[in-house]
Amino acid sequence: MTALSIDNLSLKLGGTQVLDDISLHVAEGEFVSILGPSGCGKSSLFRVLTGGVAADRGEVRVDPAARIGAGSAFAFMPQRDALMPWRRIIDNITLGLEVQGISRADARALAEPMLPEFGLAGFDRHYPHELSGGMRQRAALLRTILQGRPIQLLDEPFGALDALTRAGMQRWLERRFHAAGWTTILVTHDVREAVALSDRIYVFSPRPARVVREIRVDAPRPRLGRPMSDASRRIEEQLLDILLEQRTA
C-alpha cells in the first residue's frame, strides 16, 4: 500500500529553482533513501512535507488510512540532533508529545518502555551534554518515532557523527527500523549508507533537484556487520557512477 506519493512537485526559493518536477512514492513499511549531492535540495523536500515552505506546483498525497487524527503525517529529524540543552533527555524525547498536548506523565509513560531499545535506559534524567554523540542521535531518533506519525523523515541523521559512531548507528538503525517496519524516508549523500539501509533509492541531480534514477536494492539483509554482498557492491558502483556523471554533466 502506498503511504505517500509526491507528484510533479516544484519549488522555488528566492528566485532559484530548488525542486524541479519531483515525483516519488513510498510504500507502507518501506525504507526509501533520497541520495544526492550536498546542497541539491533534498532537505527542501522535507521542508515542503513538514509544512515549512509551500510548493509552487505539484501534489503531496498521504494515504488517509495511515493518518492518525488531524496532525501531520510526518515526524522529522533534523541534521543535527537539535536536542534542547536545558531539557533532560526524557523531556527532549517527549517534546513532540508535549506539543501535541499530551500530559507530561502520559508522555513519559509512552517513552519509558522504549528507552532500552534505543540504548538510553538509565540516561533519561541526564542532560544532552552528558551523553555521547551516538546516544544523542538515538535520543533524537526516539523523539522522532515517539510522535507516532506514519512516516519518518530523517535528514542526514548521522552526518555530524565520527566514522566509528556512525558505523555503529547504521548497524543499529538497520536492525531496529526493519524489525519495526517504520515507513521512513532518509536523506543522505552517503552512497554506502543509502545502499545498506534502503529498500529503494531515488537519486537526485544537483540543484535544481530532479529524480534522475530510481533503484531497488534487493541485496540480502542484514547488510551491515558482515562481508558486503555482490549485489550491494554492484549497486554502490552504479550509484557512484550516476552521481559522478551528474557532476561533470
Binding site: Q79, A82, L95, Q147
Partner: peptide
Amino acid sequence: TEPEVEELLRSMGASRMA
C-alpha cells in the same frame, strides 16, 4: 535560538507562541 530546534518544533505542529 538554533534554527534546527525551531524547524523541529514547527514540524511537530507547534504554534508561534509554543
